[in-house]
Computed example of a mutant assay.
Amino acid sequence: MASKEPFHVTDPETLRAMAHPLRQRIMVEINVREHARAADLAKALGVPANTISFHLRVLAKHRFIEEAPELARDKRDRVWRPVVERFVVDRTLAGAERALDPYLRWLRDMFLRDRTAPEVQSDFHEGTTAGAFLTRAEAEEMTAEVFAVMERWWDKTSAAKRADPDDPERKFYQVLYAVGPRDLAGGPTADDEPA
């Protein structure tokens, strides 16, 4: 079982290792399954097994995963298990924003997606913005509530995924949450104002 304590990314090499979107997705899948072979992950993610094997070795080098030889069928069989469930990036690290880039690209795509396209209509997609007038204490309370809901759904759906890892109806849905005071930075410019 992976550690619940966040893994602190404090060096550029480890940052590059975990910033790759496929590696992030591999980490999600291996955490849910609790252990997996490259072939299992290749099937689940629709990526060639040799590509998955390469990324597994990179993740292992940086201590995100480790081999589980006791789960192997023979000496050639490589089974991997997660070492960490979550990671935290040192914000002062040069290039720290790279860890967020795949998430932000996905979020931008969610908001700009053509919801009338046939491939989009088959799945649920929702992008929205909302706000509230909060004190700092209220923002902290709301954040704790949101995280509790997300944890409950992670636990519930992870159990279902482990029970049937190849269920084609069960897909990975991303949820991003950010809360903070909003100012006009990045808002309208003088050119946007009415004459």
Rank of each mutant, 00 (worst) to 15 (best):
S158I: 08
E85F: 00
Q24G: 03
D77H: 13
R136H: 13
D109G: 08
A60M: 12
G46E: 01
H8P: 00
P118D: 09
E70Y: 02
A39M: 11
R73N: 11
M1H: 15
S3D: 10
M150E: 12
T51S: 07
V146P: 07
P188T: 01
D114W: 09
R98S: 10
R105P: 00
P188D: 05
A17G: 00
P12C: 03
W80I: 07
R76F: 12
L104A: 05
A185Q: 14
V47N: 02
L71P: 14
Q24T: 01
E140T: 10
A178S: 15
E85S: 05
P102F: 05
H62I: 08
P118L: 05
L112K: 13
E29L: 04
V175C: 06
V83N: 09
A130S: 14
E145W: 01
P165V: 00
L176Q: 15
L107P: 00
R81Q: 14
A19P: 15
D164S: 06
V120Q: 04
K156Q: 14
A185C: 05
V58W: 02
V58S: 05
D123F: 09
P82V: 06
L184M: 06
L71H: 12
P21G: 09
R152C: 08
A195H: 12
F87C: 09
D166T: 13
N31V: 02
T135L: 04
T143M: 09
F172M: 10
R81T: 12
V84I: 08
F133V: 07
L93G: 04
R23D: 07
V179Q: 10
I26P: 00
D183P: 11
G180I: 02
I30H: 00
S158M: 10
P6M: 02
E193R: 13
F133H: 12
V58H: 07
D191A: 07
T143K: 10
H125R: 09
D167L: 10
A159E: 14
H8N: 06
D114Y: 07
F147T: 06
A94S: 08
L22D: 10
A42W: 02
L176W: 07
V84C: 13
R152I: 04
A68E: 10
T116Y: 06
A178N: 06
P12F: 01
V146F: 04
E126S: 15
A17Q: 08
A36H: 03
S158E: 03
R63V: 06
V79N: 11
R37T: 11
D191V: 05
M110G: 15
D101M: 15
Q174K: 10
R115I: 04
T135V: 01
N31R: 04
E126H: 15
N31E: 03
T92H: 01
R105N: 11
D155P: 08
V175P: 15
S158W: 04
D11V: 00
K61A: 12
E5D: 15
E140K: 08
M110K: 12
E141V: 05
S122C: 00
G127C: 07
R23V: 06
A132T: 01
V28Q: 07
F111Y: 12
V84L: 08
M142H: 14
L15F: 04
D74I: 03
T14W: 01
V28W: 04
F172V: 13
